[in-house]
């Protein structure tokens, strides 16, 4: 049977909002960490056959991430969009994504980025796997389908781990594992020419609305502001050896080396 891979992608905010978080193509973009996940899915399907579904939860203005995913090579996009999903934290988001993934059954692999660069919790992938009750490997650097198993590799703390997974399974993909492909113009044309994106609301899912949104979220983001880091330029004096000594001390102070 041909593989069905679901890739969960998120639009992340690039500009700190004035009041409240508004996501649109102008103020948001596809989470950079999701691109390698998409690339891995598309490449695997190119090798093994099958289909890639991109799934995103967010307001309607975020459909652009799905267009982008399709332009890259995904076959289909599903936007989970419902005002009742607003203010969902990572737990509520994982429950909603889990319910959407169930509706996309049968599937073989669910892929996530390791984290997002606008909130950086790294929780959604693992929590969704738990909600689906399927095996999970995080930070995967390569994946190969060796029917009926999925063989994945993961590099951590100087070790290389290999796993054989029975399917369905979930993975988070290491950002440096693959170079995401560039989007060809013809892909964009195709993404918009054929209606390949569906929008689902909570009514389409078998999920208690109380489990998502503000009510379903044990945590809440109170505010979000752009942080500016003070940059300082300092000239070190003395001979080269003395400068090197001071430099080493300074780097030690930052904790980067010991």
């Amino acid at each position: 049977m041909a593989l069905h891979i679901i890739v969960c992608i998120k639009s992340v905010v690039t500009k700190a909002p004035e009041n409240g978080i508004i996501r649109s193509a102008e103020t948001a973009e596809m989470n950079l960490f999701d691109r390698p996940a998409l690339e891995s899915a598309i490449a695997l399907v190119e090798r093994e056959g099958g289909t890639v579904t991109a799934l995103s939860m967010g307001p309607k203005s975020c459909a652009f991430v799905l267009h982008e995913a399709i332009a890259m090579g995904a076959d289909r996009g599903v936007l989970l969009s419902d005002p009742r999903l607003g203010d969902s934290d990572t737990l509520a988001t994982s429950k909603a994504l889990g319910a959407a993934i169930k509706k996309l059954e049968p599937y073989d692999i669910v892929l996530f980025g390791t984290r997002t660069y606008d909130s950086d919790t790294g929780q959604v992938g693992p929590q969704t796997a738990v909600s689906l009750d399927i095996p999970l490997v995080t930070g995967v650097s390569s994946l190969n389908y060796e029917k009926p198993l999925l063989r994945v590799e993961r590099k951590v703390d100087g070790f290389r781990e290999e796993y054989n997974l029975s399917l369905p399974a979930a993975l988070t993909v290491h950002p440096a594992s693959v170079k995401p492909r560039d989007i060809p113009l013809s892909g964009i044309e195709e993404a918009f020419e054929k209606k390949k994106i569906e929008t689902w609301t909570l009514n389409d899912l078998s999920l208690d609305p109380k489990l998502v949104g503000k009510k379903g979220s044990p945590t809440e983001v109170l505010s979000m502001k752009k942080m500016t880091r003070e940059r300082k330029c300092e000239f070190l004096e003395g001979t080269l050896e003395e400068q090197a000594e001071v430099l080493i001390e300074r780097i030690k102070e930052t904790g980067l080396i010991t």
Partner: peptide
Amino acid sequence: MNTFLSEKNRAVRRSVRAFC
């Protein structure tokens, strides 16, 4: 934001800009 542009036009800009 340019009101002339469709979602498709914007997607073109984003992808070409990223490449360039």
